[in-house]
């Protein structure tokens, strides 16, 4: 297991990066479609884009107002 080639590395990391990306995209879609958010929408967009993993979670938990 010690010799992991570059290619194998990608098959390990890529799905994870893909999932994180997917989560951010869904959060962005939810943010765009939400009628009102707690705080300005552009702030949430920045949080979702730049805070890794916790940003989308924070939006889903606390971001939307009445749903």
């Amino acid at each position: 297991m010690d010799q992991i080639t570059n290619e194998m590395l990608w098959t390990i990391i890529a799905p994870l990066a893909g999932l994180q990306f997917l989560l951010a995209i869904i959060a962005l879609v939810a943010c765009a479609r939400a009628e009102s958010t707690r705080g300005p929408k552009w702030m949430w967009v920045l949080i979702i884009l730049f805070v890794n993993l916790l940003g989308p979670i924070a939006f889903f938990v606390a971001g939307r107002r009445n749903e």
């Binding site: 999932l19 869904i26 993993l53």
Partner: peptide, 15 residues
């Protein structure tokens, strides 16, 4: 499903 819980909760657990 409508408030995306079925998507984000499993995704976060998987990550």
């Amino acid at each position: 499903l409508r408030n995306y819980k079925w998507i984000w909760v499993p995704l976060v657990f998987i990550l």
